[in-house]
Amino acid sequence: MKKILLAPSLLSADFSDLAGAVKKIENNGGSIVHIDVMDGAFVPQITYGQPVIKSIRKLTDLPFDVHLMVEKPELMVDSFAESGSDWITFHYESTVHIDRLINKIHSLGKKCGISIVPSTPVSVLSEILPQVDLVLVMSVNPGFGGQSLIPYCLEKVKELEKIRSEKDLNFMISIDGGVNEKNISNVASSGVDIIVSGSAFFNDKLKWEL
């Protein structure tokens, strides 16, 4: 069985102790730090931005996947690259000129991810899958932690894995939202490469043995 990477989400960490949260990720099987950036427009809440990412960058050598849940991400990628992002993941639904933005992120020396919300079908990504490094399948409606996984989103993961295999593509597949100790086995068997976990990880309810 292939190794599946764990990417704990700082969205569910104690914001008053992000240093402790990063250390917990390092000490409990985390391979990637998932950082949810919310602007209060694309999603209801506002989280943190470039200065916070820059301040925690020095705390770890783990890669940062900065998940931009923002409108017009093309206006922000330069500053997020400068703040210490290793991956910059934006939403298909948040911008028009996707091809241009993918090229921009790569020109900054960063890996590029694209994310889709539960109501967006995999088919919309057909033209750009050869260009991206990561596809992030949202398995909850983005904006809040602690939600339940939407089961049909696992079918998207399986569809992406099939496309990747048939077309010999190299993008990684990540899933984000509602993964816990009860469903992690089903999630792991769907074809994912990366599992994002927030509430379950930071509440010590996820036993990472994959």
Rank of each mutant, 00 (worst) to 15 (best):
K2T: 01
I4G: 06
L6C: 10
L6I: 14
L6K: 08
P8D: 08
A13L: 14
A13N: 10
S16N: 14
D17L: 12
D17W: 11
L18N: 07
K24Q: 12
K24R: 10
I25A: 12
E26I: 01
E26G: 08
N27W: 12
I32A: 10
V33C: 09
V33M: 01
V33G: 07
H34K: 15
I35R: 01
I35W: 13
D39H: 08
D39W: 14
G40R: 15
A41P: 01
F42Q: 07
Q45K: 15
I46F: 04
P51A: 07
K54E: 10
R57P: 09
R57D: 08
K58I: 12
T60S: 15
P63A: 06
P63W: 08
F64Q: 08
D65E: 15
V66K: 03
V66S: 12
H67C: 11
V70W: 15
P73H: 11
L75V: 13
V77F: 05
V77G: 06
V77D: 02
S79Q: 14
A81F: 00
A81G: 15
W87T: 09
T89K: 02
F90I: 14
H91K: 13
H91M: 04
H91P: 06
S94Y: 11
T95S: 15
H97C: 03
I98G: 04
I98L: 15
N103S: 14
N103W: 03
I105T: 05
K111P: 04
I114G: 06
S115C: 05
I116D: 02
S119G: 01
L125Q: 02
E127Q: 09
I128P: 01
I128Q: 04
L129V: 13
P130R: 04
Q131T: 00
V132Q: 07
L136T: 02
S139M: 09
V140R: 10
N141L: 05
N141M: 03
F144A: 03
Q147R: 12
S148V: 10
S148L: 13
I150W: 12
P151G: 14
Y152H: 11
L154S: 01
L154Q: 00
L154R: 01
E159I: 00
E159Y: 00
L160C: 00
K167H: 11
F171I: 01
F171M: 02
M172F: 10
I173L: 05
G177V: 01
V179Q: 03
V179S: 02
E181Y: 05
K182V: 08
K182Y: 09
N183G: 04
S185K: 13
N186F: 04
N186V: 12
A188R: 05
G191Q: 00
I195M: 07
I195T: 08
S197W: 02
S197D: 03
G198C: 01
G198A: 13
F201E: 09
F201T: 15
F201P: 07
F202C: 08
N203C: 07
N203F: 09
N203W: 05
D204C: 09
K207V: 12
E209F: 12
L210D: 05
L210T: 12
